Simulated assay, not measured.
Amino acid sequence: MIALPPATRVWLACGPTDMRKGMCGLAVMAQEVMKHNPHSGAVFVFRGRRGDLIKLLWYDGQGLCLFSKRIDRGKFVWPIGQIGVAHLSAAQLSMLLEGIDWRHPERTWQPALAG
């Protein structure tokens, strides 16, 4: 993944998206459905109905970039039954791209009890 600037905002389109859409179609969705400027520098994330393909739209300062990833096994974790937009942190986006449940990450260690 290309390193994003630290203050980059990440917007996730909660409903399923027609994955036949390309850069222009997704930019229109970002603007009209998600109500955000696709040239703002934010990352817009879209998932298809089957759940194994996502597309990311990002304006890097010179032009729009379109990234896609198809996961080999399983599905990308997505908000269920929601319509609209969700805001993710850069860490949550990294987990999403790795196929990790970004909504409920669990630590592998427990903090020591003060006592």
Rank of each mutant, 00 (worst) to 15 (best):
A13P: 03
K69R: 15
R73D: 09
C14R: 09
M29E: 14
V33Y: 06
D101L: 13
L26R: 14
W11Y: 13
L113D: 03
S68R: 07
R47Y: 00
Q62I: 02
G63Q: 05
G99Q: 12
L12D: 06
C24A: 15
A112E: 09
R103H: 12
S68K: 05
P38N: 08
A112Y: 04
H104I: 13
I71Q: 12
P6E: 12
D18P: 03
P111A: 11
P79I: 02
R73C: 05
G51R: 03
L57P: 11
V85G: 00
W11F: 11
R50G: 00
V85C: 06
W11P: 00
L88W: 13
R103G: 05
A91N: 14
G48F: 07
M23G: 07
P6A: 11
G84H: 04
M23N: 11
E32Y: 13
L88Q: 06
L12Y: 07
N37D: 15
T8Y: 01
G63E: 05
D72F: 10
D52W: 06
I71M: 15
M29L: 15
L66D: 14
A13L: 10
S94G: 10
G81Y: 04
L4Y: 11
G41F: 01
R73W: 01
W102V: 08
A13Q: 08
I83F: 07
A42Q: 05
K55G: 10
A42R: 07
V10K: 01
R70E: 08
W109I: 10
R50C: 02
E106K: 10
F44P: 06
L93R: 05
D52A: 06
A30N: 13
G61D: 09
V33T: 13
L96M: 13
L88G: 07
R70Y: 05
V85E: 02
A86W: 01
G25F: 12
T108R: 15
G41A: 02
G15K: 04
P5K: 12
Q62R: 08
A30V: 15
L64G: 04
I100Y: 11
A42D: 07
V77D: 12
V33N: 11
L64Y: 03
Q31I: 00
L57K: 10
L113F: 04
D72R: 13
S89R: 07
F67C: 08
H36T: 00
L12R: 07
V85F: 00
F44T: 01
R9V: 00
C65L: 14
W58C: 00
R49S: 10
R70L: 01
C24Q: 15
R49V: 08
G41N: 02
A112V: 12
L57S: 10
F76P: 01
G48I: 09
Q82R: 11
V28K: 13
V77P: 12
L53S: 03
L113Y: 04
K75D: 12
D101V: 13
C24V: 14
I71Y: 13
M29F: 06
M29I: 15
G22N: 14
D60R: 08
V43R: 01
H87S: 09
G15R: 11
M29Y: 09
I54E: 02
A112K: 12
P79E: 04
F46V: 00
F76E: 03
L97K: 05
L26E: 06
W58A: 00
Q82M: 05
F76N: 03
G81Q: 01
Q110G: 05
